[in-house]
Design a protein around this nucleic acid. Structure first.
Lengths: 346, 346
DNA sequence: TTGTACGCGTTATCAC
DNA sequence: GTGATAACGCGTACAA
């Protein structure tokens, strides 16, 4: 195994008869170095195949140019897009991105944040695990002045940056849409209520019903563990077997909504005439399923971009994070055939 | 901003009246330290809130416990699952994972691999960008004895680990399946031919036709730039407008295959009776589209797991990477309604 | 089993 | 505009 030696700033210094400090400064575009020297140093570095050792720089600065991510699982469309947005923004700024998956387990989230902390990340971007309801493990970052951006699934009480959508309004709008289509008995597939996103979507749903003087029926509201396809299918079967089944479903995610479409179709229930359905997220499956699923679209990549920028700005300006700065993004109701009764009229 | 000071092994040493080296050894489970001391040190570390500085350790060892990933885009189902598998395996072993997206641009891949190199990664896992046909930028790793695992989209000539599926056999099997359903004129949606995966899928297709004495018709074989939904739709329209249109399509990915289904449906073409379709990847949309898409399934997460293990083993055993070690995983043909003509028989 | 001493590559501080 | 020096936190060869 013939391993070549690394070129360091000392090698450059020797070669150019400069001191290592000058080389370092030149490579970092320090103003006190003449432009000529900077160019000379950079050219020589390129030529000699010099590669900076970010570990050494990180040790010296007690900070690596790295953004840490803690999310539930990568292979969900929303999350993948979010990460994509973070990565693109970070890389443009010369930052690396470390990812960690909690698989929605509180315990994993704790271990992962520890590992990220140990890597001396510049900042943390986190979307909470399903199980998380305690936030002690994030203190280690704020104690050291390391910024945290919570995205999408955020804690209620914790000083940090937050990047979210207006889940309440989206839930309200989705429900209102179904009402406008003539639905009188709208079921809701809700998620874990200690998570802001599901809690607020439900609130929006409830308030829309009230607003339009529709009764709130507890047996039409169901709290799901994971909002999975299987859960959705089972629940749809249960609902449609009622003596007085619902004529609309607002699901807190697309996976469960699609399962409802597929179950209903298999039973010959007409969508949207007998059952209008709207989901949440605008996953790729939503536009593929037949009839296509109405849904609420998230600007996922944009959220990632904003989150990364928060970290970069914070780091650049040495901000103090004593306040919560919340960014709220707009959502969009996308109306497709699963809820579009008006399209059917002459 | 009240920033607490970090605890180091020196603080532990002072507290316990040991030397820093003993602390270091104890924390790393060095055999020459008594179990009692190890326990004492670890307990005290825990108690005092000691956190290792991986940057310092990395600098010392000229290696950070990090696996670098270079892929096209995260928000594709196959890639997300792959990364998920890598991350899980790496984290269990105490390794971090840095991701980088090329967006299928050669230039980005070069920049990203540089950044990963600078982070002193333990190993690189890479799935080539669409544009990549030169592999110079990977030499920097092999020159330094850093292992590379190419996954899925791999170079033909480059000494490294490789983790792939048998694209040839899968292409052959998919085509054979269509033939067995009675297809006589099978079109192929092919990808960039300098990428092994698309080249081999096409070869399998061609050989299956030959094997069953079907003519190879160049006007039924089309090379796509990205195999996108739009490309697929356009091409399907073109094919179905022929005076003698195909009665089957083997698409090198699911996205294009699904677009074919949707286009055909919109034109009243019966699937699978008039047009049988099979895709590749088993994306989530495949089982949702109606009729459900037959496809070839990849063990994506498994591929990620194996890739990560290759890096970890290599690093553990100080292997010399002078040979190419190729792992070939099995695929599975999943037959759904888009190609299942036999199901329609009485 | 433990301690001493040094170096990994970089950058901040002070000096000129 | 440039140089000398120390320090970041850790691991290890060598010594005891």
């Amino acid at each position: 195994m013939n391993i070549k030696k690394e070129i360091t700033i000392y090698d450059l210094a020797k070669k150019l008869n400069y001191s290592p400090s000058t080389i370092s400064r030149a490579l970092n575009d320090n103003k006190s170095i003449s432009k000529k020297t900077v160019k000379l140093v950079k050219d020589t570095a390129e030529e000699m195949g010099y590669r900076p050792n970010v570990l050494a720089a990180g040790l010296r600065n007690n900070k690596s140019k790295t953004i840490g991510i803690s999310i539930s699982r990568i292979n969900r469309h929303f999350i993948a897009s979010l990460i994509s947005g973070i990565e693109e923004t970070a890389r443009k700024a010369g930052y690396n991105v470390i990812i960690s998956q909690s698989n929605d387990k509180y315990k994993n989230e704790i271990n992962n944040t520890k590992a990220l902390y140990d890597s001396r990340i510049t900042g943390l971007i986190c979307s909470l695990s399903m199980e998380t309801s305690d936030y002690e493990h994030f203190k280690q970052f704020t104690d050291k002045g390391i910024p945290i951006v919570f995205v999408d699934r955020v804690p209620n009480k914790f000083n940090s940056y937050k990047v979210v959508i207006d889940n309440y309004s989206a839930g309200y709008a989705a429900t209102k849409h179904l009402i406008e289509q003539g639905c009188k008995r709208i079921a809701h597939f809700a998620g874990e209520q200690h998570l802001n996103v599901y809690e607020e979507r439900k609130k929006g749903y409830l308030d829309a019903l009230k607003e339009f003087n529709l009764p709130i029926e507890e047996n039409l509201i169901h709290h799901f563990k994971t909002l999975s396809f299987e859960e959705g299918k089972k629940m749809t079967a249960k609902l449609m077997a009622m003596t007085n089944p619902p004529d609309g479903i607002f699901s807190a995610n697309d996976t469960a909504a699609v399962s409802a479409i597929i179950y209903a179709k298999s039973k010959g229930i007409k969508i949207p005439e007998e059952l209008a359905i709207i989901g949440f997220n605008d996953d790729p499956i939503s536009s593929i399923v037949d009839p296509a699923l109405s849904t609420v679209s998230h600007p996922a990549a944009k959220m990632g971009e904003i989150s990364a920028k928060r970290i970069l700005e914070h780091s650049k300006n040495n901000y103090d994070q004593s306040v919560s700065e919340v960014t709220i993004l707009n959502t969009e109701i996308i109306i497709r055939d699963s809820s579009n009764r008006k399209k059917l009229l002459p």
